[in-house]
Design a protein around this nucleic acid. Structure first.
Lengths: 242, 242
DNA sequence: CGATGTCTTGAGGCACCTCAACCAAGGTGG
DNA sequence: CCACCTTGGTTGAGGTGCCTCAAGACATCG
């Protein structure tokens, strides 16, 4: 079951959280960040595999990840589902439901995960007094738009190998930002989830991993990925065919 | 060439624009709408085929359509491009560049088009005094996120015929909202543009139009579409295979 | 009226999917 | 501690949905 944690004086606040350079406070002065304590009054622990929220649930907050990984996905009439995003520590998700008061996607923990809760009405009042916060919210919203547009291009215009290459390079960049190695990292999602995200089947995804390994682009050990030839991956994105 | 029009006393303002029920003022009281005159001080005419803006250009405004149609698209390293949206009268676009100050997509007029210009800094200051405006901006941003997520599902999980059916139903709904017939409307985009948007080639798109016509779902006369069997189109989305 | 862009239709190929078997790793219970 | 099961991943064989290439029909417009 998911577990709510109320924050008190001793709790770690945004001001000294390691993830400030990625998360909400990004780009704010230290006196502004102090005020974010008003914003994050609660954290939630979600065990691996559990839902933080589901489509249709009342929405009154957005979330940033303290530890763990979250996937968001949507579904349609015939039960087919599409993963719309993977989120790593420091990243903010749940933005799609900010204006409607209802969640438009599901959010599931891919491993034991803890998230910071920011209530939308607190966000509205505080960002009115704190222009940098308003600006940061806008950055997050437009960032999400831009990311989905890039993903549209990936699904609409790229071949399978290019989609996977672009996925791996994206993950590598995000792990780097977290202070991990850019060469070697452990993915938290299954082949099926990667495939779903990229509009491919799990078999095609698995075959691509094998092929990339055989061609010396990467080395895989289950979900641990080692990037051996980053520029080759990058060049894949530049080729028109084959 | 595109042409800027400064608005004066006699110009039509948001308060008596026919599109208020779709556009920016949507859901605002009449006294709030009066203040939007401060926001829209300018309109721009874009002839068919011309760019309103390009990727990388300085961005300082978002736009709503008064008359005409706009497509937005992005491109990647290898020159492949992906249409990210079509926009009809009353609809607001250009949101992806709201926070960065730089356009992240191209915007092209599919026919002679006139747009209302809302400068982002005016928007920021006015929405601070006018909470309903702030809320409307958030609605637009999250609406754009939600729309791209739906499109991700379309590209990632649906077969070609389902993508086209869903496209036609979406267009029909939007034309209806404009006061046009929900059964018959004239698309402003080519088969190639529809295909690009749906992640298909123009030939596949054309074949699908022909097939839908042969099966009595629609009737086509060039870009004029008549929907003959709406529920059949809808049922297409519910089928798992074939 | 020709010229040009847009759309349609056909034939063939290939990238990715489907179906299916097998394997590896980890957990569980006797 | 080992048989057993489960879950996730790999690999193969065959099928097909969509793409590519190509030709022709239609609109639209100078």
């Amino acid at each position: 079951m998911i577990k709510r944690l109320l924050l008190n004086e001793e709790s770690i606040h945004c001001a000294n959280c390691m993830l400030g350079h990625i998360c909400m406070p990004h780009g704010m002065g230290s006196e502004d960040i102090e005020r974010l304590a008003e914003l994050v009054k609660e954290r939630i622990r979600i065990p691996k595999g559990e839902f933080l929220y589901r489509i249709g649930h009342k929405a009154n907050a957005i979330y940033s990840i303290r530890t763990g990984t979250i996937k968001t996905h949507i579904e349609n009439h015939n039960g087919h589902s599409q993963i719309t995003g993977f989120f790593l520590p420091g990243e903010v998700f749940g933005l799609d439901s900010m204006a409607t008061g209802q969640h438009l996607s599901h959010a599931v923990a891919l491993e034991d995960t803890e998230v910071c809760v920011m209530h939308t009405d607190d966000l509205a009042t505080l960002s009115q007094q704190l222009p940098p916060l308003q600006h940061q919210v806008n950055r997050l919203l437009t960032g999400e738009i831009s990311r989905s547009h890039q993903q549209l291009l990936s699904l609409g215009a790229l071949r399978s190998e290019q989609r996977l290459a672009s996925f791996l390079l994206d993950m590598s960049e995000r792990f780097t930002r977290l202070g991990y190695s850019s060469q070697e990292f452990r993915l938290r999602m299954s082949r099926e989830e990667i495939g779903n995200y990229l509009g491919l089947t799990l078999e095609t995804t698995s075959r691509l991993f094998s092929r990339f390994q055989k061609e010396g682009l990467i080395q895989t050990q289950q979900r641990t990925i080692k990037i051996l030839d980053r520029s080759a991956l990058f060049n894949l994105l530049k080729t028109e065919h084959a």
